[in-house]
Nucleic acid binder design. Structure first.
Length: 162
DNA sequence: GCCAACGTTGGC
DNA sequence: GCCAACGTTGGC
């Protein structure tokens, strides 16, 4: 059992988009960084906790709770010639990129990046390290608990309200 | 749009 | 295997 923080650009796939799907689940496509890929391929397990993070937007931060919902499998977008995630060196026989399915559990009150930086328990969090660009970063149990404690007040709220 | 930080590529 | 050039990320 591990915990993760996974970044998504909300104008591509937002927490609302995921909650609006029938199974509240999306393939985490588009990862093109080996370290992030290896987390999905080698370390993630079904049921791992996921902090759903919105990046490249007005208020970057954690916006929901989710979980890993599948084992890794080839990311179909690598084969889509003309798509922005196409990789000419990948073939169905020898895929280079994988994804996992991520199931949204709930939308939370946003916990902004600036608020995360203000939490002393998160001093070593990978997301907050200088120069970090990884779209998938591990979260320790202690960090997870500290963050959950800040998210809990919103958990009783209706999950599909804006 | 800027730009720091970091990853990838490719010539040698 | 080195490393300069280039590309990307992502907060601001």
């Amino acid at each position: 059992m591990h915990y993760w923080l996974m970044k998504s650009e909300p104008n591509e796939v937002s927490i609302d988009d995921v909650l609006a799907t029938p199974a509240r689940t999306v393939p985490w496509f588009g990862v093109r960084n080996y370290q992030a890929r290896n987390f999905m391929r080698d370390v993630m397990q079904v049921g791992d906790g996921v902090l759903f993070y919105h990046s490249s937007c007005a208020e970057p931060g954690i916006v929901g709770l989710a979980e890993v919902a599948s084992t890794p499998y080839p990311d179909a977008t690598q084969f889509d010639a003309g798509g922005k995630y196409f990789d000419a060196k990948a073939t169905p026989e020898q895929p280079r990129w994988v994804c996992v399915d991520v199931r949204a559990i709930s939308k939370t009150r946003p916990l902004a990046l600036s608020a995360l930086r203000a939490l002393p328990e998160l001093g070593d969090m990978a997301l907050l390290k200088r120069g970090n660009r990884l779209s998938i970063t591990p979260v320790t149990g202690r960090q997870w608990q500290a963050i959950l404690a800040r998210l809990t007040p919103a958990l009783g709220a209706p999950q599909n309200s804006p």
